[in-house]
């Protein structure tokens, strides 16, 4: 028995060493990946834990496990800042912006893809070029124009510009090129369907999966936007969620518990959306780049 085992091990030695080295390498790589994943997760874990402790505990102890002061922190926060109103305002702005953005970008992407009108190449090049403009370039003029239109302190300046979304047009034109068959449109024309009707009843349904992916990105970028509502909205009660979260910093200087609750309320919805749709989000980025 004994000798057998030794000779067996001796025969296999070279490959055994290689596989030990290989699995050690694999282990090391996984350790690195896990450590990095922890740095991504720990700040959010710490946020959740701290939001459930009193401000005194937060500022004097190292907290590793949840406590039971969440409700107290939440009530102090709500007494000064109605964070759910901010949540509602952000949702209203983000949902309506996303709807407008998707509809008009699908229309334009389809227009660029399937209609051979004069100047199409130039106009599409112009759309692409607008993506290179830094967002803050016209911000003073934008503020001034909204003032002239009497639209300051309303949500219109935060919603209407979403109609012009260059990236969405670029993305949806690619989708129309590859997955809307021209023969189908011709058949519909022969049947006497109007152009807008073709768009609504044939093209939009074909675009639905891509629109769903795009919707996530447009929604998140609107949900997260900060500088625009900060400039356009004066009335604190009308503010969006990110601005309200920013306000907690000034108004709850040493009440850390209440500040953490504000941060938690703004992060949780994104966490939920992402855990449901992470595959879609990640493949969306991949597709956008490969085509770009």
């Amino acid at each position: 028995m004994r000798t057998q085992r030794v000779t067996g091990a001796g025969r296999k030695r070279p490959s055994a060493v290689a596989s030990v080295r290989r699995s050690a390498g694999t282990l090391l790589i996984h350790a690195f990946l896990v450590a990095l994943a922890l740095t991504c997760v720990l700040p959010f874990y710490s946020m959740l834990v701290d939001s459930t402790h009193s401000s005194t505990d937060i500022s004097t102890k190292l907290l590793l496990l949840p406590g039971d002061d969440f409700v107290g922190n939440y009530e102090r926060l709500m007494r000064t800042i109605n964070i759910w109103e901010g949540f509602l305002h952000s949702a209203l702005i983000a949902v309506s912006s996303t709807a407008l953005s998707l509809y008009f970008s699908a229309l334009a992407g389809y227009g660029f893809s399937k209609y051979p009108f004069r100047g199409r190449g130039f106009l599409f090049g112009f759309v692409l070029a607008t993506m290179m403009i830094p967002g803050q370039l016209g911000i003073v003029g934008f503020f001034n124009l909204m003032n002239a239109f009497h639209l300051l302190n309303t949500y219109w300046p935060l919603i209407l510009p979403s109609i012009a979304n260059a990236f969405a047009i670029f993305f949806l034109r690619q989708v129309c090129d590859s997955s809307v068959p021209t023969e189908l449109l011709e058949a519909a024309r022969i049947d006497g369907a109007g152009e807008l009707r073709i768009f609504h009843s044939i093209v939009l349904p074909l675009l639905t999966p891509s629109l769903a992916t795009l919707a996530i990105f447009v929604f998140i970028s609107k949900w997260n936007s900060f500088l625009e509502p900060l400039i356009i909205i004066f009335d604190n009660a009308k503010q969006t969620l990110p601005v309200m979260v920013a306000m907690t910093k000034g108004q709850f200087a040493t009440d850390y518990g209440a500040q953490y609750v504000g941060v938690v309320i703004s992060v949780i919805p994104i966490l939920i959306v992402f855990s449901v749709a992470s595959r879609r989000v990640i493949s969306g980025i991949t597709v956008g780049v490969l085509k770009g």
Binding site: Y115, T130, G138
Partner: peptide, 28 residues
Amino acid sequence: SWAAHGYLFVAPFFIVFGIFQLYPILYS
């Protein structure tokens, strides 16, 4: 007659871009 619809379909982008981005940029 149908190809010209392309202009209508891409027009909203250019109108909204003109009002909310291009004009503010030039005004700045």
